[in-house]
Amino acid sequence: MRQNPSFVLGDIPELRRLIADNPWVTLVSNTENGLVASHYAVVLDPERDDLTILGHVGRPDEAILELGSHDLLVIVQGPHGYISPGWYDAKPAVPTWNFVVAHLTGVPEILGDEENFRVLGHLVEHFEERMPTPRLMEGTPANAEYAARISSGTVGFRLTPTSVVAKRKLSQNRPAEIVDRIIDELENGSEYPNPALAAEMRRARR
């Protein structure tokens, strides 16, 4: 991804928030057989305060990704959306796309079976905790038995990125009154409503 100094996202807490809020990522691997992409949920490593992520893949994906043998590119896609030229005063004008995205690159560490099982449990707990009655992986003896059986079909990994390229293109190059208009269209307009993108724009201004 080409970087633009005006749109660099380099703040670690903001990057951690981006990952936490957008856990469904794309894993890209340049293998002997060409480029391969898979899609999985990840979480931040709770024992670290950097951008280390934890995740898992199915065993077939471990093989086709050649996981652990070379760099893996993890693409984290935040809110994004169409921005009409009718929302700003530039003449002539063309449409654009606002977005937040991060590319994390590194060689993933393959986890042993016990640690993989713990990571799977943490992943389930992370997403279930907001449910009225969380269904945890080891919440009942039956659940624990089932989880232990199917976990053997997964491979856990930890990735501490050695390269991070992150971009937050949210109309920072526009005058404040134009940014206000774009935010209003995203929040209240009927054609391309996108409250999540509007919230990111408000955050970027702060």
Rank of each mutant, 00 (worst) to 15 (best):
V42R: 00
A144D: 02
E138M: 06
A147K: 09
Y146P: 08
E145T: 10
I75S: 09
L197Q: 04
F157P: 02
R130Y: 14
T162S: 14
T154I: 00
P46G: 06
R17D: 14
S6A: 15
L35S: 09
S171A: 12
A176D: 06
H70P: 09
R118Y: 03
R118P: 00
Y40A: 13
D113K: 13
S29H: 03
P23W: 03
S152R: 11
P193M: 05
I64F: 08
N30G: 08
L51G: 02
Q77L: 09
V164S: 06
V28M: 03
E14N: 14
K167M: 12
Y88M: 10
N4E: 15
H126L: 04
E128S: 11
R203C: 11
L104A: 01
P60N: 10
A147N: 14
L170H: 02
I183C: 05
R205F: 12
E128F: 13
S171Y: 00
N116Y: 05
P161Q: 04
N194R: 09
R206M: 14
T105C: 12
M1G: 13
G86L: 14
V124Q: 07
A90M: 09
H70T: 09
V42A: 01
S84L: 07
W87L: 04
S151N: 13
R130N: 12
P108N: 01
V155H: 05
D11I: 02
M201W: 00
R59S: 10
D11E: 11
V8W: 10
G86Y: 11
G106R: 08
Q3I: 11
V107A: 11
E128R: 10
L9I: 13
L123S: 02
Y192F: 15
F99E: 07
S29W: 00
R168G: 01
L123G: 02
P13H: 12
W97K: 14
A204D: 04
V155A: 09
Y82C: 10
G58T: 06
V100A: 03
L15Q: 01
P13F: 13
G121W: 02
D49Q: 15
R17Y: 08
V43L: 11
F99S: 10
T96L: 11
R206Q: 15
